[in-house]
Every structure is written in structure tokens, then in C-alpha cells.
């Protein structure tokens, strides 16, 4: 299942609708990395609220997405990690180090807007 990517101002929003296969994740990664420059976006939000499991591949891909987008000149925030998922992740050592996280979409947008302001 493909992940829809929405454009909202200077921000791209990708919302997971369900658990994704590895191929879907790879597809999402290349789509986001391409579109972030095409739309001249300054921020990307990946919303994982619907995910109730996060395996090591998904977690590594999210980190790669964040780092690649940084190299393409924008900021990434992962939002909506469930409490149980968060604790399971740290127990597996998947801590998404170096990646910004926020409670939900609203918080993610607030975080990016704050970032845009300080950079300006």
C-alpha cells in the first residue's frame, strides 16, 4: 500500500494508514526524498499514529529518511509514536537517535514552524 504524501505550505506530510511492507517503506523513502526538493519544502512530517508495531527495518528506514532529507536541506519530524510502541522500541535499542519526534501532527507542525522562524 502506497503512503500518500500531502503538501501543506512548506511542509510535506506522509501519514501511514496501516502497517507497511519493506517495499512500501523503500518506496516512501525515495518518494519523499525526491519531492522534498521538487516542492522546495522546508520540512517533512511522517505520521506513524496508525502503526502498532515498529520493527528494526521500519525504524532504520525512518532514520535514513530523516538523515537523507537533512542532506537535501529540510527538517524531518516523526510524530504519533504510541506509548507502547515507544517503549518496545527502546527495549529493542531502536531509539531513532538524531531524529526529531513530536506527540502528534499539531505538535510536529508547531516544531517545524519554530525551526523555520529561528533559521530565518
Amino acid at each position: 500500500m502506497e503512503v500518500p504524501i500531502l503538501k501543506q505550505g512548506a511542509v510535506l506530510i506522509a501519514t501511514f494508514q496501516a502497517a507497511l511492507s519493506d517495499a512500501d517503506l523503500n518506496q516512501l523513502r525515495s518518494a519523499l526524498v525526491q519531492q522534498v526538493v521538487r516542492f522546495r519544502s522546508r520540512g517533512v512530517i511522517v505520521d506513524v499514529t496508525a502503526m502498532d508495531v515498529m520493527d528494526s527495518f521500519a525504524s532504520r528506514t525512518l532514520r535514513e529518511i530523516a538523515h537523507m532529507i537533512r542532506l537535501r536541506g529540510a527538517e524531518t519530524v516523526i510524530v504519533g509514536i504510541q506509548p507502547e510502541v515507544a517503549f518496545a522500541m527502546v527495549q529493542l535499542g531502536l531509539t531513532l537517535e538524531g531524529v526529531a519526534t513530536a506527540l502528534d501532527l499539531e505538535e510536529g507542525l508547531a516544531y517545524l514552524n519554530q525551526k523555520f522562524k529561528t533559521v530565518k
Binding site: T95, T101, L103
Partner: peptide, 12 residues
């Protein structure tokens, strides 16, 4: 330490 990291994943 894990609690601190899990809280960060929730954005806190």
C-alpha cells in the same frame, strides 16, 4: 534510561 528515550520518542 529507556524511559527517558521512550519519552523523547513521544516528543517530550
Amino acid at each position: 534510561v529507556q524511559t527517558v528515550e521512550a519519552s523523547r520518542l513521544l516528543g517530550a
